[in-house]
Design a protein around this nucleic acid. Structure first.
Length: 427
RNA sequence: GCUGAGGUGGCAGAGUGGUCAAAUGCGGCGGAUUGCUAAUCCGUUUCCCGAAAGGGAGCACGAGUUCAAAUCUCGUCCUCAGCGCCA
């Protein structure tokens, strides 16, 4: 698989890279690519010049050393050497400048897409892969999940907003317990499949963060701690992927399977309409995430595996859902291929996104310099990340699908042992 | 947060302006030898540019002094020990 951040790859496969990126249907990407290519050319020429000058300096330095040892006159050599540092420095300034411009440019170019990503212009052309679960007819009007929770006294939006502003919530009593139950169930489910639980730091430095995300996210998504080099994590995917920065694995140690549990923080500066109210577009939420580091040839297989794991979870929650394959025009910067899982909303009579599952191929690994030894060679690993459960959205799905005529919430059987045997949330 | 010590190759650990990509030991990989194993010996073990020959960079990171920096100066980060504060 082609890895984009590797300059060599673009130099050698320009036509292929361009053709692939064109499928994303965003002309600004190609502009960036071409911009990089021409700057890279200038950089290589300059690098050769600088290296030649340095070689010259090294030879003279060696001659001075010899002359000194033999007690010869070093003056003419010193004269000759005198001007070199300045000459080098002059060229180095431009070289550095080019590097500083080129790197972010290269980093802003999205990942190459895999062959079986459906071609399409935007979200309307995503493809439904399959559906699961039964959509049951309700003989009563399904109430908004936020209202149900408030009425039952298990969520408090007003007081959360009072102290923290819009986009925050408090869970109380049994709904708070349900949050923990979902986390524990997810962790157990994946634990049985060999995924190791990690609770990562909630903040990361910029350097670590650059490797795992789109640069524009720094403005639009992440919270920065004022006066410090710290960003609040937007998902466990970020610390769990970045933590292996600058490491080389042995082939036998792969795949590496992690289940990350974290509280996540996002600006979510988009619209907050009526339908987004409640437990949907929040600044803070818990999530359990699947993370895989694997050999290049195994990532597609693992991608399917992660989808299965997420489906298994949704099925255990007794929810109707569908799996969507994201098309070329709608896929994010980092992913080479992406699925979403959407759960049914009986109130809106439509599906809403609860899971996102990406194969990032070598895109993150190359930025983070994560490799594995393949015989005598080293190769970038492939990274994958997938939601196992994003708590608030899952709570919403459960509250809507399992609410009763009486306004209570039935707890899915799989979660009952995690709820101290409780089967229903009542007032 | 304060004080002190320190950060060198995959690991351990020398080196205090040019003889240092860096002794030595351990490990990894390749090869030789032994009937197998063990032992022994030889080579190899980072990144960048280049078709190659070759060249450059690299001793926590960044800047500076110098013809020349692991080595000198300044800043930053991190680790360890002690003190302070603290869930």
């Amino acid at each position: 698989m082609i890895c984009l951040i590797d300059p060599k790859v673009i130099r050698e496969n320009y036509a292929l890279v361009k053709k692939n990126l064109e499928m994303r249907r965003d002309s600004s990407i190609i502009k960036k690519l071409d911009n990089w290519v021409s700057q890279d050319k200038e950089w290589r020429i300059l690098k050769q010049e600088v290296d030649d000058l340095r070689a010259k300096r090294n030879t003279i330095t060696e001659e001075i050393k010899v002359a000194k040892a033999k007690g010869k006159d070093m003056k003419p050599l010193l004269e000759k050497a005198k001007s070199l540092p300045n000459e080098i420095k002059k060229k180095e300034v431009r070289l550095k400048e080019l590097e500083l411009e080129n790197r972010p440019l290269l980093m802003s170019i999205p990942n190459m897409l895999l062959d079986d990503v459906p071609y399409g212009k935007d979200g309307t052309e995503n493809v439904v892969v399959r559906k699961g679960g039964e959509i049951s007819k309700k003989d009563f009007e399904v109430v908004h999940h936020g209202q149900v929770a408030s009425k039952l006294g298990v969520a408090d939006f007003e007081r959360a907003v009072k102290i923290s502003g819009e986009g925050f919530y408090s869970l109380k009593g049994d709904l708070a317990l349900l949050n923990l139950a979902l986390v524990n169930f997810a962790v157990d489910l994946l634990g049985k499949k060999g995924f190791r639980l990690v609770i990562p730091p909630a903040m990361m430095t910029k350097k670590a963060y650059e490797g795992v995300t789109d640069l524009s996210d720094f403005e639009s998504v992440m919270y920065k701690i004022e006066g410090e080099d710290h960003y609040m994590i937007a998902t466990a995917e970020h610390p769990l992927t970045a933590m292996h920065m600058d490491e080389t694995f042995e082939e036998k140690d792969l795949p590496l399977l992690y289940v990350g549990y974290s509280t996540n923080f996002r600006k979510e500066s988009g619209r907050h309409g009526l339908e987004e109210r409640g437990l949907f577009r929040l600044h803070q939420f818990d999530k359990v995430e699947q993370i895989v580091f694997c050999k290049t040839e195994d990532s597609s297989k693992w991608h399917e595996e992660l989808v299965k794991n997420a489906e298994e979870f949704v099925k255990a929650m007794e929810l109707p859902y569908r799996v969507i394959k994201i098309c070329t025009g709608d896929i994010g910067t980092v992913a080479a291929k992406k699925y979403d899982i959407e759960c049914w909303s009986p109130r809106e009579q439509s599906y809403f996104e609860t899971h996102s599952l990406s194969n990032c191929t070598s895109y993150q690994a190359s930025r983070l310099n994560i490799k594995y030894r393949k015989g005598s060679e080293k190769e970038f690993v492939h990274t994958l990340n997938a939601t196992e459960v994003a708590i608030p959205r899952m709570l919403r799905a459960i509250i809507e699908n399992h609410q009763t005529k009486q306004g209570t919430i039935k707890i899915p059987k799989a979660l009952v042992p995690y709820m101290n045997g409780k089967t229903e949330i009542k007032a």
